[in-house]
Write a protein that binds this DNA or RNA. Structure first.
Lengths: 120, 120
DNA sequence: TGTTGACCTAGAGTTACTCCAGCTTGGTAG
DNA sequence: CTACCAAGCTGGAGTAACTCTAGGTCAACA
């Protein structure tokens, strides 16, 4: 599959996919006879995982580390597990931030309602 | 209160607070006789709101717009409400992204467990 | 045959901080 | 009184993670 289709599937932009490749976040991507990139289903799975990690705030440095671990096979699974567990903890903190923000918005909106009612 | 205390209260860094001031996200901040910034309780409330909005991904452009609306009094409440409602919708989308990522991590971690058990 | 669309590379631009150099001020220890 | 330290100040450089642009190739279709 070509880059535009891969982008549609994983949710990253075409530019971001090429950028991630330059940064060493992707395995070597095959090229067709025309010199253009061809993405396998596995490549797209990996891109989708990366998209999910970056959407939830994993820094590229961590992603690069995580991507690097794959190159050394199953022996790096404990370390990979550690990275993902830490990110899972990060997800919880983000969820708290979301909840706090939702609370604040609720109060603000309530206050706007009160003010607008007063002036009617 | 001085900038370091304000930073502790709102959760933004000192640099970020000064940066937000330069960008016009803050009302005029009073200065003490020593020329240093003094933050009122209201200032800190506003900083805390900004911190919560940026932690949940509101772009500075939107924050600047939102901050600008305050300068024109209650007549801008409908627009301010619109901004906050849109951000509330954004929070939901973020929550979905968090959930999806948590699911993916769960599967990945499960797979690591399976592989590690196999090799024992 | 020519033009359209998808792809390519290298590099510049943008956003939102973050850090740094070099300065002033206020309080305290000798 | 002086020396020093912490906290603050400004202006500007540096960084992360994209995002966009210019200029070019190639395949396919009118």
């Amino acid at each position: 599959m070509r880059i535009s289709e891969a982008a549609r599937h994983c949710g990253l932009s075409i530019d971001t996919i090429r950028f991630y490749e330059r940064c060493g976040l992707l395995p070597p991507i095959e090229r067709g006879p025309d010199g253009q990139r061809r993405y396998s289903a596995l490549d797209v799975d990996w891109l989708t995982l990366l998209a999910s990690l970056r959407d939830t705030g994993m820094p590229m440095k961590t992603m690069r580390h995580f991507a690097g671990l794959y190159r050394y096979g199953d022996q790096t699974i404990p370390e990979r597990r550690k990275v993902l567990l830490e990110h899972a903890a990060h997800l919880e903190r983000q969820r708290d931030a979301l909840d706090r923000c939702a609370q604040i918005l609720k109060h603000k909106l309530q206050r706007y309602d009160d003010i607008t009612e007063d002036t009617q």
